[in-house]
């Protein structure tokens, strides 16, 4: 394991629930509360590039998982960062202030998985229409229940579950 990650692990020893390797990349699982400070430290240590944010639904654990893929262009090192939030309170801190790349990525996760990001300046759906019901990448999302998007008289998007005029 590389030194950057070791330093971070030492610094946040109490916040890390689990650490290990995902094939060739080191990973740490953080407590939700420590996410923002950890990311800030990681950025300062040299992880300047946030590649990807993945939201995963874990129905067995009744939790939603958020996975951050960090990379350092300076030291050529990876870090996979994970954190969890329970179904009852699906919110984690936004890292949009640390990496601008997170602004779009978090909106996507919010849209498709339904995880809120506190502190995000513009948290709206991004790929789906605003009034869409449910979050498609949750495991309990019903694919049988079709949704149709139309404009109402004010020109706003509305969702209906029956095909209406124009379909």
């Amino acid at each position: 394991m590389n030194t950057l990650v070791k330093e971070l692990q030492r610094e946040f020893a109490h916040q890390i629930e689990e650490a290990g390797d995902l094939l060739d990349k080191p990973f740490v699982r953080l407590r939700r509360e420590a996410l923002f400070t950890f990311c800030k430290a990681a950025r300062e240590k040299g992880f300047d590039y946030l590649a990807c944010i993945t939201g995963v639904d874990r129905p067995q654990e009744r939790a939603l998982e958020v996975i951050y893929n960090l990379y350092s262009y300076e030291y050529f090192q990876h870090l996979v960062l994970k954190t969890r939030c329970p179904y009852e309170d699906p919110v984690v801190d936004s890292v949009g202030l640390i990496w601008k790349a997170a602004l779009f990525l978090e909106r996507e996760v919010f849209d498709l998985v339904g995880i809120g990001f506190t502190g995000h300046p513009d948290l709206r759906r991004i790929l789906l229409p605003e009034p869409w019901q449910g979050h498609p990448l949750r495991k309990d999302y019903s694919l049988e229940r079709e949704q149709f998007v139309n404009k109402d008289t004010q020109g706003r998007d509305v969702v209906s579950f029956e095909p209406t005029e124009g379909w």
């Binding site: 790929l127 789906l128 229409p129 605003e130 998007d157």
Partner: peptide, 8 residues
């Protein structure tokens, strides 16, 4: 697609 069609 997430925008309301009319812009205030």
């Amino acid at each position: 697609m997430t925008e309301p069609y009319t812009i205030e």
